[in-house]
């Protein structure tokens, strides 16, 4: 798992990864319109306004789409699930689904998911697992 790719973090996204280390998924929203957006940037892509705020997401979402990947990736043992989660806040996020077998029978679209983190060195990477799952 330590071979898994770690993100190259840039000044504009440092807060996101700092938050992840504290177990938080941080999103941003436009203070003018309330629009939530992802991935992070220091202005709202909907309005162009720099008047934005950072807030903590609920960590809840639903399985929006996925593939069960058989192709190699450093540190991953295929098959593994590459998914897009629709967060409760209304933005989509690419992630992995963990804590359930990589099998279509276990991965029903729209199933509820919750946030978890995987440590890669000292970087915490947000992932999702079936909601209510004890693992």
């Amino acid at each position: 798992m330590s071979d898994r790719q770690v993100p190259t973090i840039y000044p504009e996204t440092q807060f996101y990864w700092d938050g992840a280390k504290e177990g938080k998924l941080l999103l941003q929203r436009c203070k003018k319109t309330g629009e939530v957006y992802y991935p992070p940037r220091p202005f709202c892509p909907g309005t162009g306004s720099r008047d934005i705020e950072i807030f903590e997401a609920s960590g809840k979402g639903r399985l929006y789409s996925y593939v069960i990947n058989q192709m190699p990736a450093p540190g991953y043992e295929p098959p593994f699930v590459v998914a897009v989660v629709m967060l409760e806040e209304g933005v989509k996020m690419l992630t992995n689904i963990v804590g359930c077998p990589p099998d279509p029978a276990a991965l029903e679209l729209d199933m509820p998911l919750e946030l978890t983190f995987e440590m890669r060195g000292d970087v915490a990477v947000p992932q999702f697992k079936p909601a209510g799952d004890a693992t």
Binding site: R4, Q5, V6, P39, S65, V67, M71, A73, M93
Partner: peptide, 21 residues
């Protein structure tokens, strides 16, 4: 920073992501 770290490194596992939806 926000997609490739999750392992969809090749077109077959990235281009296909929307299709189940």
């Amino acid at each position: 920073e926000f997609e490739a770290i999750y392992g969809p490194l090749f077109p077959p596992s990235r281009f296909t992501l929307p299709v189940l939806r």
